[in-house]
Amino acid sequence: MGRIQLKQVKKSFGDVTVIPPLDLTIEDGEFTVFVGPSGCGKSTLLRLIAGLEDTSDGVIEIDGKDATSLPPAKRSLAMVFQSYALYPHMTVRKNIAFPMKMAGVDKAEQDRRIEAAAKALNLADYLDRRPGQLSGGQRQRVAIGRAIVREPAAFLFDEPLSNLDAALRVGMRMEISELHKKLDTTMIYVTHDQVEAMTMADKIVVLQAGVIEQVGSPLELYRTPRNKFVAGFIGSPKMNFLEGPEAAKHDAHTIGIRPEHVEVSTTEGLWQGKVGVAEHLGSDTFIHVHGVPGCDPMTVRVGGEIPVHHGDTIFLNPNLEHLHRFDAEGLRIQ
């Protein structure tokens, strides 16, 4: 069981309010991702849930019980830190055994859980090494192993992949997702990377300056962002925003169109512009088009090869079905 509910939770450091009163429910077994730009209070929120910071106001309930003033160890939550926070003078086995030792689990049971975790995480060959002798990915696995053996009600991850190289990151992303499927335990995962959020989450919580901008499934956020911030934050490359007369034609202050929802033509189209930088990814090419009224540059996606060069004039046709409209406050117009 791991249902976590935040009711009017607030956090200030001195005079600075980092998280204004906030409500959030995380259902049992859900993979929830907190995503937002750096410094928006994601870690603080996670640490409030973990009990590593005191709330300034409000109530945190875990499985329906008030946990606001419980110490971290009593919340049956396990956390994986950004720096992994392994104990450098202990072997991998001792690291993983540490929480069980503290909880007074008997030796045989400890060994059984260590074996199981080591097998699940491919750590069996490294159990007698120290963290200093492991690669980044292996350390990450040890940190996860140390969390698993506690059999917690929920896992908390704070940017666990940000210290890994790109290839390893994709691999670990998969492993964590698989782990979630296998354990079926609540997981809260903090990241500033919207790709991680989109690929892993059941539910994404988009934060900005401590305020929840939107909560929803990845596709909900992609298809119906509640405001301009979410629209710009979710999706890669970013959504293009147009203001001025073009937006007025659609009765909006701002309109948004994603790069993948614009068709490119060399002969005719709604908007006209000059080709700037082209980013070739192989499967796709992203072209930055200059001179589109109200949006400079506009990014568009074309599949594979297209016979245009820097400086060429091209025409753009937005797919109006996928047009997003926002009012002057940046809120979505239905």
């Binding site: 973990a50 009990g51 590593l52 110490p71 971290p72 160890a73 939550l77 396990a78 956390m79 830190f81 950004q82 720096s83 926070a85 392994l86 104990y87 540490f98 929480p99 503290m102 909880a103 140390r146 506690r150």
Partner: peptide, 22 residues
């Protein structure tokens, strides 16, 4: 690293255990 102490705290180590083990 303060995260090590926090990790130990979450792992259920009392202040005395944190002193002796970390």
């Amino acid at each position: 690293d303060s995260e090590q102490l926090e990790a130990a705290e979450m792992d259920g180590a009392s202040p005395l255990s944190r002193f002796f083990y970390i």
